[in-house]
Design a protein around this nucleic acid. Structure first.
Lengths: 148, 148
DNA sequence: ACACTATTTATAACGATTATCAATTAATAA
DNA sequence: TTATTAATTGATAATCGTTATAAATAGTGT
């Protein structure tokens, strides 16, 4: 099924008039197969075996292309490096404050909040961002060990 | 009432063993009176009249102190500068994608989402972040003008 | 094959933030 | 009040993620 995602993504790019270069193909493939919301640098490092000459700029440039095509979401974290998430269906992120792990979870889109916000502020609403922060099971276990 | 906020904030700091310097006093005061979710640099520039010798580092350092004391929330935006929000009551942010303006709005805290997420992922939930993105009335008006 | 444009690569530049460290200062106790 | 001392400040350099630039390369259509 990741095959299908890749094919759809490539079609979307073609339709927008974007060339499919080997680098773009590889970055997309990596994003789709990755379960880990990688940073640009992680993608860069993971592909340097296949593309010893690829520049970091290429990764950034193409992530922007993908973002503008709606294929990829950028998760920004202030000073820290952005993480990139291949867009499949609507889901939210649960983020561990201990180790930084990101776990996806599904939840019916919060359209009521959008409507409410639009009504109160007079804005035309476009999208929203929701993240939940906490401690993952692994880090919880670690904490328990420390107490003993 | 902003007087009260300031007094409470100073008490909180004292209780944590943090010294009240003139710079800290001024930064806190500015944050409380500001309706605009300022960046560190905006705070720095606004106070350079009063403190011609104050360093940007001091602003950053103290914003971190305030954040760690729970007095201030940092709103991070990837590459762009963080904005700082004096913590009063729970509210969310509506952000204009046109001009960057931030408008507060109140909404009953999304505890159900937290519970749901905790149940599904096994994390211990701590907090969440919700932001709504759209276009503010001013920018909407501008867009309408352009169409004519 | 040719010209034209998109893309890549390498590198320099940028901007926000943090680290460093000597100089200063607020809080505390004598 | 004054002395003491650890916290804080201020100036500057350093860091890090990201973007701009410009030359080299690769596709694409004629």
């Amino acid at each position: 099924m990741s095959e299908l995602h890749l094919k759809n993504a490539l079609d979307t790019l073609k339709a927008t008039g974007v060339r499919i270069t080997p680098q773009r193909h590889a970055i997309l493939e990596y994003l789709i197969n990755s379960m880990s919301h990688p940073t640009a640098d992680e993608i860069y490092k993971s592909l340097e075996g296949k593309f010893p000459n690829m520049s970091v700029a290429t990764v950034y440039n193409n992530l922007r292309v993908f973002r503008e095509a709606g294929l990829v979401k950028e998760l920004t974290y202030g000073d820290a490096a952005s993480r990139f998430d291949f867009v499949t269906n609507d889901h939210y992120h649960m983020i561990c404050e201990g180790c930084g792990k990101i776990t996806d979870f599904h939840y019916p889109a919060l359209k009521e909040v959008e409507h409410f916000a639009s009504h109160v502020t007079g804005y035309k609403v476009n999208s929203h961002r929701l993240e939940v922060y906490g401690t993952c099971p692994d880090c919880l276990e670690q904490k328990n060990k420390q107490v003993l």
